[in-house]
Design a protein around this nucleic acid. Sequence first.
DNA 1: GTAGGCCTTCCCATTACTGGAAGGTCAAGC
DNA 2: GCTTGACCTTCCAGTAATGGGAAGGCCTAC
Lengths: 129, 129
Amino acid sequence: MNIGEVAEQSGLPAKTIRYYEEIGLVRPARGENGYRAFAAVDVHKLVFLARARSLGFTIEDCRALLALYEDRGRASADVKRVAQEHLGSIERKVAELQAMHATLSDLVTRCHGDDRPDCPILEDLAGRG
Amino acid sequence: MNIGEVAEQSGLPAKTIRYYEEIGLVRPARGENGYRAFAAVDVHKLVFLARARSLGFTIEDCRALLALYEDRGRASADVKRVAQEHLGSIERKVAELQAMHATLSDLVTRCHGDDRPDCPILEDLAGRG
DNA sequence: GTAGGCCTTCCCATTACTGGAAGGTCAAGC
DNA sequence: GCTTGACCTTCCAGTAATGGGAAGGCCTAC
């Protein structure tokens, strides 16, 4: 299977698939013409990667998860640990964003948003908030 | 004032201050020895930038906000618009993260996390969820 | 004069791609 | 057989916003 079809099936851009090969996440065979020849197992891996990335796992997380996926003797505890750490980082990011949002939406509410220059947003940024 | 002291006062690393100069956010004078010589106005700008960055504004947003900050004839509506767009992007990010969190925390709950290989997390990633 | 703590510039690395140039391959149509 | 266009290839460069570190100049204290 050529890269274009794999891209379609996995939902990943061809560029990204090439990148994943470059960093060793997949190792498709090559045809005589030099084209990548993807086997079913490669496509499965790419689908797996696409899904893991869409859940926000980093590439290195994906590498670890893929290794566990392929290890028939894995312990589910190892998978769970990776997922829980990622959940924690999501929670930290959400908290950070919500703090920003709270501050900023308060400032926005207090800004008249007219043609005059006085602005509580700028005043806050300037340290006079 | 030398960069070290400015770093301390603004809370920005010296590296970052040099970067901000490189991209034209600040333009400190230079002493005869080649050292950057920061005036009070430069420090104010850096404090402003540090605060804006901490609220998640991009560098380009910061550039725009700084220009408005320095424009005594600005309309507060212009400031408010930048802030509102940023609020929107924060909201989109939070929503995305929360969707990831919902999916992932469900999977984590369903994973036994023991020494056996069966794992709903991997099954989901593999597309059999 | 020398030790150390500043300062300078410069280049490389990060994350996870994305865009684009230059060129090889393949299948269809004439 | 030739052209056209859609594929495919590699390689280089850029993104956002820094961080790390090397090599070297400057400044103050002892």
